[in-house]
Design a protein around this nucleic acid. Structure first.
Lengths: 256, 256
DNA sequence: CGAATCCTTGAACACCTTCAACAGGGGTGG
DNA sequence: CCACCCCTGTTGAAGGTGTTCAAGGATTCG
């Protein structure tokens, strides 16, 4: 059994691929970690077998053992509140992490469910300490990811406090667009694996409202949709509706 | 004109106190750090001089250099969106940290303003690396704090998505109660340093709605209020209104 | 092929917002 | 020290955005 240093065997053993050959490498945990150290990290990262649509990664209440990174597909996380109703906390695309909210309590506070066939890496949180010298840089990277998460949550707070239904949906579509683009996919055309119910729930609206908005966006020529495939015909207009300052020269925003 | 800088009637000792003598020690960064290591941490932590009501800790756009911990008083953080309007992101009480959302970008994304005379510790983020052996445990502690923050944000998301105005205000009052209790203060009686405007903004409601609710809560005997001092006359009822499962037997939080 | 779930559209309603007017209070300047 | 004024807070009435209720159509999956 040879540890592949090539990117050749992508197709056959997708779930065996090492971090440095992973196609979301530059978005995931190992950024900024040296090659030698990466091999150590590789050793403790476990490649989960693909999860079917509807399958669970973990449930609310489960003990917190792993941090998860999405390799392909998409996941939704949600909490159950008061028995029946649930609240969708977020949607995770390839290169995004799950479970960070459980570090403090040691117990998962959300459930994570696959929206489509997905593959996921499992990183045993407490074995990160075994990494010795690199523990510090991995932890630093983790902190950056968590910081990004907090920032995202703050923007969501603005969205839920200040924006109308129309603005929320526009912002949601643009957010997906941006994230897909970062992952090397098209920014104006993608598959939406989440249902109207999930979107409505996530955005704090009723399903009917979301449905009406999709219809209206389509009438207005902003989008075209067939089945789960969506095309943003006027991304610029959607960005404006979402309240995103047009083509921001993001100049000084950078960390080092 | 010299009168304006007249602020130094605070006991000097208060802002010189070391971490292990701080009265929010058990809520702050140094938990779980050994005594010897604590001295190292103490060395790099700078005790900020007290900030007057309305004073700023940092502004949105400032470079990220420090993490801040509130020692006394209270701070609000907010982002400015589209020029005029702002969004209150949160209120920080003693023992709570600020600036964690800037780790990723290296630039503060919020402004932090004192709601009353407050004192604050300044922790130079990049000098945490100097801590050598303990860097790992400090970083772990930081991750726990950030994890807690993320969890809090998720609960806020539920609040903003699912709760009515009444439930939101009840939850807000109960949240303050809980946090004051954790800090050794009364759970049913405290000073609210934030204005109705800030509360409304934070909860995604109009000021008028908040004002009406306060009046109604008072009519119904749930609270009594005089100036900024509030007394929760029926904490239990408020908790129920907030949707908090009464007297939580937190033992076995099972999944389903 | 049938059942369950998801999605759509219409109409009535509710909660909260907006607009408006006024009361109180704390800080500043005369 | 008092008057003034801005800011905060209160209360009422009208109005709007999104919800709820209802019913029917579309899609998926065993």
């Amino acid at each position: 059994m040879l540890k592949t240093e090539f990117s050749a065997s992508i197709e056959l053993s997708e779930r065996e691929v090492a971090c440095n050959n992973c196609n979301v490498f530059q978005l995931c945990l190992p950024i900024g970690i040296g090659k030698a150290d990466l091999k150590l990290l590789d050793k403790i990262v476990k490649r989960h077998r693909p999860i079917k649509r509807g399958g669970y990664l973990f449930h609310s209440g489960d003990p917190f053992l792993f941090i998860y990174a999405v390799k392909s597909g998409s996941i939704k996380t949600y909490t159950s509140i008061g028995g029946e109703t649930q609240q969708v906390i977020g949607f995770q695309l390839p290169g995004e992490m799950l479970g960070l909210d459980a570090i403090d309590t040691g117990v998962h506070q959300c459930s994570a469910k696959a929206l489509e066939m997905s593959s996921v890496c499992e990183i045993p949180f407490h074995r990160l300490e075994e990494l010795g010298d690199i523990v510090s840089s991995v932890q630093y990277q983790l902190m950056r990811l968590m910081s990004k998460q907090i920032l995202h949550d703050n923007m969501l707070q603005v969205l839920l406090c200040k924006k109308t239904a129309e603005e929320r949906l526009a912002a949601f579509l643009v957010s997906l667009s941006t994230r897909f683009k970062e992952r090397g996919f098209s920014a104006i055309e993608y598959n939406m694996s989440m249902s109207r119910y999930d979107i409505a729930n996530y955005l704090g609206l009723a399903v009917e409202t979301i449905s009406r908005l999709f219809s209206r966006f389509q009438e207005e020529g902003l989008i075209t949709e067939r089945k789960k495939h969506i095309r943003l015909r006027d991304l610029n207009q959607l960005q404006i509706m979402a309240g995103i300052p047009a083509t921001v020269p993001n100049a000084s925003v950078q960390s080092r």
